[in-house]
Amino acid sequence: MASDVEVLLQMYREQHDQARQLESQRASLSNLVIVVASAALGFTAQRGLAMTMLIVTLPLVGLGIYGVLACLKYHERSVLHHRAARQFSRRIEEHLPTLVISDDWAELHAQQQLRFPKIFRVRLYALWITLHVGVAASGAALSVVIFTHEL
């Protein structure tokens, strides 16, 4: 029969595996959005900013908004899995107090913050969201230019 620590360790691993899977899905989605947006922008540049190109530029807005929402959801789920993993880590430490896992983690966190003080504050999910906002903004800007040029 498995010990309490073995069960907690398995649950800890599962939470990290889930967080890793979410990051992989987010990366795949973002790569797809980048490819589609690049193709759409290239097609628009090749054809010019005619009214018919709204069929390409307007969906870019929706694609970018979808990317933002998906990244926010991936972040929310990732936070859930990381918090659960920390909870299981604390429970493991209760069973094996000599490990001092939380103290080691706090020390590593503080060292990282000292080594990279400016970039440490930047959240990775915010960078991904900015990318998707850029896709939506490029579609919106091109659409506005098309509307104003044709009027």
Rank of each mutant, 00 (worst) to 15 (best):
Q87I: 01
Q46T: 15
S89K: 02
T57K: 08
E6Y: 05
V145Q: 09
G134E: 10
H132R: 05
W128P: 01
C71H: 07
R121L: 07
A137T: 12
T52E: 11
S24E: 13
R86I: 00
A137P: 00
H149W: 12
Q10A: 10
T130E: 05
A140L: 14
Q87D: 09
L58V: 14
S138C: 12
A27S: 11
R115V: 05
H109Q: 12
H95P: 03
L99Y: 12
H109S: 11
R20Y: 02
H149L: 12
I101R: 05
A126F: 04
F147V: 05
I92K: 03
L69A: 15
K73Q: 15
Y125D: 03
I92A: 02
H16D: 11
L9Y: 08
H82D: 00
D103N: 09
E94Q: 04
L58H: 07
G134H: 11
V36K: 11
L9M: 09
H149M: 14
G62R: 02
L32S: 14
F120N: 12
R83T: 00
V35H: 07
V122K: 06
Y125H: 13
T98L: 15
Q112W: 07
P97Y: 07
H16P: 04
A70V: 13
R20P: 08
L58C: 11
V68T: 02
H149C: 10
V100G: 15
I101C: 07
K118G: 09
L131T: 05
S89V: 00
E93M: 06
L41Q: 11
H75L: 06
A70S: 14
K118D: 05
S30Y: 08
R121C: 07
F88C: 05
Q87G: 03
S28E: 12
F43Q: 12
P59H: 04
G134N: 05
A110M: 04
I55Y: 15
K73R: 15
L124N: 13
A141H: 05
L80F: 09
P97F: 00
M11G: 09
S38L: 06
H95K: 13
A84V: 12
L114N: 13
E150I: 03
M1Y: 08
E150N: 10
S78G: 07
V135W: 01
R90I: 00
D4V: 11
H95A: 10
L22Q: 02
Q25C: 07
Q10K: 15
R83P: 00
Q21N: 10
L63P: 06
A137Y: 05
V56N: 00
R26Q: 06
R86F: 00
N31S: 09
A2D: 13
A137L: 13
L63C: 10
S3E: 12
M1F: 05
V135N: 00
D103L: 08
L60M: 15
